Simulated scan of single mutants.
Amino acid sequence: MLDQSYYEKADQIIGNYGRQQSALIPIIQEIQNEYRYLPPELLTYVAKELKINEAKAYSVATFYENFSFDPKGKYIIKVCDGTACHVRKSIPILDFLYKELNLSKEKNTSDDMLFTVETVSCLGACGLAPVLTVNDKVYPAMNPEKAGELLKELRGEA
């Protein structure tokens, strides 16, 4: 059960876009930006407020890979595993992050909700490979050692 403040924030966001069905995607995008994930209860609430069938709202939210129903950490680290990054050894970086943060493919958010580690097919920065992003900021020419330094910096230890 979500705190009432979540629903109040949803009402504010809905108010910014209006109650047209066509506003569903920008509304749920803004909700996800606010909470770093899309709480299922809020998707149900938004569907009701926009007079959209709940199943239709869920089909939209699950169609787009960008939406997540799972809470994410403060820092979302995306490791590129596209061809250029893969051949330039992005997997050792991913393995290092998993080990350092006690994560895996199945468990990608740290218990302290500080880090979420995801892989992506391409970040569009092939000339800088291997790359990763932290909250959409690109870090080029990465390796496990640089990733360790970055984690220290993000934790405020550097």
Rank of each mutant, 00 (worst) to 15 (best):
A47Y: 05
Y75M: 12
L114K: 13
L103A: 09
E157L: 12
F63R: 11
E49M: 13
L24M: 09
I77W: 00
F69S: 15
V46D: 12
K89V: 10
E145C: 02
T62Q: 15
N102H: 15
V138Q: 08
R19C: 10
Q29T: 01
N108L: 02
E30V: 12
E100L: 11
T116A: 07
E54N: 02
V120I: 01
K78E: 01
G73Y: 01
I14W: 05
R19T: 09
P130I: 14
A141F: 10
Y7P: 15
L2N: 09
Q20V: 08
V46H: 10
F63S: 15
E8L: 10
K146M: 11
K51E: 06
K72S: 08
K9C: 07
E153D: 05
C85A: 02
S121Y: 05
P92G: 14
F69G: 08
Q21L: 08
C126Y: 12
Y17S: 03
L150T: 06
G82E: 00
Y58F: 15
N66S: 04
N102L: 14
E149K: 07
N102R: 09
T133S: 00
K137G: 03
L97I: 14
E118R: 03
A61I: 03
T44C: 12
K72H: 09
T83R: 12
L24R: 12
Y139T: 01
T62W: 13
S68M: 02
S121L: 06
E65I: 04
N108F: 02
V131A: 01
G127H: 03
I52Y: 10
F69H: 08
F69C: 11
A61E: 06
K99R: 15
T62V: 12
L24K: 08
L101H: 03
K152A: 06
P92H: 13
E106T: 15
Y75H: 08
E118L: 02
I28T: 05
T62P: 11
A147W: 09
K48G: 09
K89N: 07
V79D: 02
P71H: 05
G73W: 01
K107A: 04
S22Q: 07
V120T: 01
I91S: 15
E41H: 10
P40S: 10
T116S: 10
I93A: 09
K107L: 08
